[in-house]
Nucleic acid binder design. Structure first.
Lengths: 160, 160
DNA sequence: AAAGATTGAGTTGTCAATCTTA
DNA sequence: TAAGATTGACAACTCAATCTTT
């Protein structure tokens, strides 16, 4: 396998570092200013956009890229804060619906502007020299296909 | 704060997904084919490039973006596999040197080509339509400054 | 038996407290 | 008393096993 040339090296190093740093910054901001980690935020977000503000556990887990059991735990945490409640599914007694409460919606509304701001400051503002359409098209190809489960844990950029 | 327009949305969504997916794929590959998670790989990597293949715990922790105690645990794991050994620092008896063993170097040599291949397949191959220099320059600005500590845990892309 | 979800056990990380040497 | 590193307690995930309905 041919090693990366200088130009490729530079691109990969920059990307790897971004991969490492961006989630940490956004996570920290959300946590400090609104007491939400990114999993919680993603759950609230997805529920807010769903019909009835409700989603089956399995669907929701898929939407936020967590294992089903992982989601159970996130919803439990959100439940303790009164942001989400569990409702038995009418049509299938095996199922549970996660439902966004008014308090949960309010919390999301409060967090959204700050998060948006973070995304702009931390990411988008730095990309203003690029052709965003080309960027989106190319980078979009990276995420194609299934989202693999978290290895078991994982972090760090992954240097070469 | 002004919401993202359609073009910005597309760019951010693509980027957020990449941030989520890339570490998982690379981590999984490394783990399955060589029994190394990304933290371990980063430690071996950094030691292999250091003089004497040794680094103080504090420096190494900084290099791989882990807390010092987190690094202690990674080195412990690597030590159990005989890939890294701890050596008392000659010049400062408070310190410890992490030293890459021959077995550790061999393991890294075995893993490197596969990892490189993963980086190409998973990332670089998709960026061939872009101007890599401009990409590196823009994305490089994202990671500037200190690397924040992991929030406490965290994951997920961070949707908007 | 299989699908939906929760629970139990284990892993990897964090921060705060501790131990040792400077 | 401060700096370098480890240890203890805890958090958030994972997979495997379980419980409940279909």
């Amino acid at each position: 396998v041919r090693p990366l040339n200088a130009q490729e090296q530079a691109a990969w190093r920059a990307f790897a570092r971004a991969i490492l740093v961006v989630p940490r910054i956004l996570d920290n901001e959300l946590l400090e200013s609104h007491g939400l980690d990114t999993s919680m935020y993603a759950v609230l977000m997805n529920l807010s956009e769903a019909p009835e503000r409700s989603l089956r556990m399995g669907e929701l887990a898929n939407a936020v890229a967590l294992s089903v059991s992982g989601l159970t735990r996130v919803v439990e945490r959100l439940g303790r804060q009164g942001l989400v409640e569990r409702i038995k599914c009418e049509t299938d007694a095996r199922g549970q619906l996660a439902h966004l409460t008014d308090a949960g919606f309010a919390r999301l509304e409060a967090a959204y502007p700050d998060h948006l701001d973070g995304v702009r400051r931390c990411v988008m503002d730095h990309l203003d020299t690029l052709d965003l359409t080309a960027f989106a098209e190319a980078v979009g190809k990276i995420g194609l296909g299934e989202i693999p489960a978290r290895a078991r844990r994982g972090a760090i950029g992954g240097l070469v």
